[in-house]
Amino acid sequence: MAKRVLMSGNIAAAEGAILAGCHAFFGYPITPQNDLLEHMSRRLPPLGRIFVQTESELSAINMVLGASAAGFRAMTSTSGPGFSLQQEGISYMAGMELPAVIVDVMRAGPGLGSIGGAQGDYFQATKGGGHGDYRVLTLAPASAQEMMDLTMLAFELADKYRNPVVVLADGFLGQAMEPVAMREPVAELPGKPWAITGARGRPKNVLNSLELEPADLEPRMQALVQKFEMMRQNEVRYESLDLDDASMAIVAYGSASRSAMTAVHMARQEGLRVGLLRPISLFPFPYQALSDLAQRVDDFLVAELSFGQLVEDVRWAVGPNHRVELVNRLAGVRLSAEEILEAIRKMAR
C-alpha cells in the first residue's frame, strides 16, 4: 500500500499537480486557497518549474494560457471572486482549444461574500461560466485523496480534450487534513504538435479562437460541440452508496456529500432505506444514472452548500413525477449530518 500522509486538500491538489507534471503555476492570493499557492511557491522552483504570483487572477489565467499554448501543463488556483475574473481566459482557452487546470476552492458569495466554504460557483463551473458557447469538464473532489487524484485526472483530461478542466472544491475540503496515499508521478506526457514551439522545420502554428467570417467560425464551433458531446459520453463519474434497496436518494457532491454520507448511516440505523448518489463529474453531470435511479427510487433529497443550484440538474434528470427537495446551508455555514437526517425524516413521513 502506498504511504499515507496527512495533508490538507489544498496541499494534496498541489502535490497532485506536481505528480501530473504541471510545469507552471500562476496565481493570486485569495482565501481559502492561499496555502495551495504558497506551497507551489516553495515546491516548483527547486524542481526547475515555474511559479509566478501575478497581479490579478486575470493575469494568472492568461499566463496559464501562454504556458499551455507553449505546450506545457499549467494551472492556477483561486476562489469565487478570482474565478469570476478568470472566466474570460477560460472562455478563450475553450475557444482556442487549450488545456488548462483551474482549481476553484469555493467560498460563499455573491460579491465578496465570506471566506467560509460553500458551493455557489456550481452554475458558473458547470454551465459555461464565461461568454459564448462552451463547457469545461468539472470534477468535484470530496476528500483530500480526491483533491490529489482528481487534480491528476484533470491534467489528463485537459490534454485529452484540449479543453480547460475545473477542479471544483470548497473551503472545507481545502482546509481539512486527511490521510492521502501518495501516487506515482506521471511518467510520460502526451505530445502536442499543435503547440507554439517555434516554426522550425514545420509550417507555423497559430492558436486562436477568432474567425471574422461566421461561415468560417460555425464549423469550428460545431467541432467544439462534438467534443463536448464526447465528454458527455465518456467522462461521467459518480459514486453510489447504499442505493440497492433505497426508496430515497440523497444527491450531494464535495464536502456536502460527506455530511450526507453520515446522514445516510444515521438514517439506516433508524430503518430508513436511504442511499447516496455522489456526482464526481459535475460536467458531464450523471443525468442518465439519476434517471435510471428514478425508475426505482421515489424521493430525492439534494444537499448542497448553495441556494438551489445542484437541485436544478437533479430535477431535470428525474423528471416531474418525483419529489425532489432541497436541504442546504449558505454563507459558509456548514451543513451537518444531523440537519440532513432531519430533512430525510421529514421527507420519509
Binding site: R4, T31, I115, A176, E178
Partner: peptide
C-alpha cells in the same frame, strides 16, 4: 493507521 480528519476553523 486509522482514518482521520483534522478540520480547522479559518478566518482572516
Amino acid at each position: 493507521d486509522r482514518e482521520v480528519v483534522w478540520m480547522p476553523s479559518y478566518g482572516a
